[in-house]
Design a protein around this nucleic acid. Sequence first.
DNA 1: GCGGATCAC
DNA 2: TATGGTGATCCGC
Length: 380
Amino acid sequence: DHSPRSEGEVVRGGSTDPNQPWQAYHTVFTNAKAGMDGVDKEKVQRVVYEMSKGSKYFENEKRREALVMQKIQHMKSQSALLTDSDVKNHEKAADIKIKNLETQRDLSRIWMHVDLDAFYAAVETLENPTLAGKPMAVGGMSMICTANYEARKFGVRAAMPGFIACRLCPDLIFVSPNFEKYTSYSEKVRQVFHDYDPNFLARSLDEAYLDITDQCLSRNMSSEEVAEELRRRVYDLTGLTCSAGVAPNRMIAKVCSDVNKPNGQFIVPNDRAAVMAFVSSLPIRKIGGIGKVTERILKEVLSVSVCEDLIDKRGLISALFSSISTDFFLSVGLGIGGSTTPVEEPRKSLSCERTFSEISHEDGLFAKLEELADNLAREL
DNA sequence: GCGGATCAC
DNA sequence: TATGGTGATCCGC
């Protein structure tokens, strides 16, 4: 109560300097991302904090931060209640799960994950070559969709509000998004994907998974050669560069495509030891499905930071998490995930939402609701 | 079964 | 001045 901190600051754990409150304001913007190696993270953190504090957004972040801290505290106290024999028993249960997962390990398929480099920005530069070499972002003052690599050097990146990006990079050029354009380029790229796997799985306009097993066998080519050739063909057809990752399953392939981004590739061979070696020192945050919050929970409750730790801490994990979550964490630790082609499921929901400034009267709220309902009805 | 939280793009 | 939209999953109640 007598702390020197003023109201309205996010404070976590008390381990940060109260005179440097931005240190406790954790955004996704300082996470490792391709092209952001030389970025002054402290400066980015400070600018984002200074421009955020006091806003409605910031207040909501504070609320969420408190919930996460509460959840972590709760799990820590649950953990403290466990006896050695509790943990031993859970370890045995986890060992059975691991044995089961290990029987499902499939090293017979070769998966490739392809990811276009700074896709929207790259398309805009193709259509307007004067943008080449200049820091540029696709999006607006509210939100940035993609930043090119020149802009990333300043800490500007996807999901960052444009007005903050302006402060980080005063010469930043903004280009409004044009999704028709990106869709048509995506269709071209997918023509190439189709030649390598007619059943390829498109994840978004700029990402896809391909099962290249048959391609490698029928043409007697290594996965490295196939990846090089596919990337060359994408470039020749569209002028766009992409990165590729190859591995025995989609979970690892996805991580691999980021290793040598941009315009590169990385391969983990179909060999159990190679997979385990790759996964052992891999930070858990690299795995799809483990985000900012899960990373914090695993780190702060269980001291888990790399995938190997998930196996070492299997007893505590089994004790503290649901069966579904435990299965997921153990499979991450084993480097197992997504080796067979999933059956295509129909869409389960359709929604329409909009962020709007404050409306205090009933009439205005009903009008907003009607607008959303109309939109949704049209979509349906 | 529902709403909130988390995650990915 | 100003911090998105869509779809999915899991969990707790």
